[in-house]
Amino acid sequence: MYSEFKEFKNYPRPEEVDKWVESIWKMANSIKYDVEVLSDNGFSFNFGIRHVKNEFTYVKFKPEGMDEFYGYWQPVMSGPAPLLIHTPGYGAEISAHPELVSQGYNVLHISPLGYATPSGPDESKQRDNTWPVLADTIISYAEKGYKQWLVNCILAVRWAMAQTEVIENRVSFFGTSQGGGCSLLLGSIFKDKGVRCVAADVPFLTNLPMAKSLRAITYNYEPLCSIDNTDDGWQALGFVDTISHVNRLNCPVLLTAGGKDNICPAEAIKSLSQLLSGTCSYNYFENLEHRYSREFITLLLSWVRMYA
C-alpha cells in the first residue's frame, strides 16, 4: 500500500477488517438497551441556549454492561426525511445543526462512551487529562476503545431509524477530526445497510503511519510505548485507520483537508482519496487550520442534497 512506511506491515488484511466489522455488529446485536428522551432539552443558563419545546432534545441511551451515553436529537418539523448522523471530535463536544434541519434532514449527534452529557463533559472518564478512547483501542488490541465507541453509534442509529420522522434505511454520516474519521468507519460498518454518503472534515484516523512521519498528532502515539509489542499496537490502529476500510466504502465520500492543519495533515487525507474507487470529492484549503469550518458546512449542504 505505502511500502515506505514500515508500520503498514502490521496492518490487518481486508478479510481481517471484514471480520472486525462483523464482530462489532455481533456485539451491538447482543446488547439490550433502554432509551430515555429527556423532557427538559438539557437547557442550562450556563449554556444560554433554548429551543422550541420538544423541537430539539437530549436522548439518554442505557446499554446493559456499558456506560450510559447521550445523543442530541434534531428532527425535521415534517417528515419522513433522511437521517444524518454527526459524531464528535476528540474534545467530545455536542453539536446542534439547525441549518441542516431547516433544509429537511433529521440530525442525531451522538456522544459515545458517556464522555459528554447535557451538563457538560464527564471529566471522571478522562485519563491523564485526555479521553482514553484511542489508548484503550491500542492496549486492548482493538477489542475496546473505538470498538465500543462504534457499537454505541450503532445502537443510537437504530433508535433514530425507528423514529416516525425518518425514512427507513437512509442514513449518512458526517463529522470533523475524530468525527470525520469515525464517520468514514461508520460508512464502512453500514455498508449495504442503508448508508447513502459520508462527509469527513479534516478526518483523524487517516493514514496514521504517514501522519506520524509528518510529525503530526505525535501525542496520540504515546500509548504504543505502554504495551509489550508495538507491532500489535500498530495492528490495532490499523483496524481503525480509514485507509484499511477503502474496499468497504462504496458510498460517495466527501473529504476536506487544510494546508495549515498540523494534527490531521492534508497529505494523509489526500492519500485516502487516491485509494477510494467510488465517487469522491477531495477539497484542499491552503489556509485552513484544524477546525470545524464554514467551508465544510457549505460543502456538506451540497453533498447531502446530492446524495443523502
Rank of each mutant, 00 (worst) to 15 (best):
A92D: 15
M161A: 12
K191W: 07
S140W: 07
C153K: 06
P98S: 11
G145N: 03
W149Q: 10
V133L: 12
L184S: 09
G175Y: 13
Y141E: 15
V133A: 15
Y146D: 01
L186C: 11
D128T: 00
S183H: 08
S119A: 10
Q148R: 14
L100V: 00
P118K: 07
I110L: 13
I94L: 12
S172I: 00
I85F: 09
M161F: 02
L150T: 08
M77L: 14
P75V: 07
W131A: 04
G79M: 04
P132S: 01
Q74F: 03
P80T: 00
G89E: 13
S102K: 14
Q163L: 13
S124Y: 06
I110D: 12
H109C: 10
S119Y: 14
C182F: 10
S140G: 08
G179I: 06
P75C: 08
A81M: 11
G104M: 04
P98I: 02
A142F: 01
Y105L: 03
L185M: 13
Y105M: 03
G145Q: 02
P118R: 03
Y141K: 15
E143F: 01
D128F: 12
Q148L: 13
I110C: 10
I94G: 06
E93W: 12
K147Q: 11
K147H: 10
Q178P: 02
K191M: 12
A156S: 06
I139K: 07
R170M: 12
I189G: 05
G145F: 02
D192V: 06
L185S: 06
G79D: 06
V107H: 05
S172F: 03
S102T: 09
N169W: 05
L155M: 14
S111A: 15
W73H: 03
G114M: 01
I138V: 15
Q148A: 12
N129K: 11
F174K: 02
I167T: 14
M77H: 12
V157K: 03
I139C: 02
E165W: 09
Y115S: 08
L185I: 05
L185F: 02
K193I: 00
I189Y: 04
A96R: 04
V101M: 07
S95N: 10
N129Y: 09
I189Q: 02
L100K: 00
S119Q: 13
E93M: 11
E99P: 00
S188F: 05
G187S: 01
I154D: 06
Y115V: 07
E168D: 14
I189P: 06
S177K: 04
I154V: 15
Q178E: 12
R127G: 08
H97L: 11
L185R: 00
L100T: 00
T117H: 12
P75L: 10
P88R: 05
L134D: 07
Y146H: 11
E168N: 13
P88F: 06
G180I: 08
V76P: 03
E99L: 10
N169I: 00
Y141M: 12
Q126W: 05
G187I: 07
L150C: 07
K144H: 14
I139V: 15
I85K: 05
L150W: 09
G91Y: 04
Q103Y: 08
N106V: 00
W73V: 01
H86F: 13
S119C: 05
V76E: 03
S111G: 11
Y141W: 08
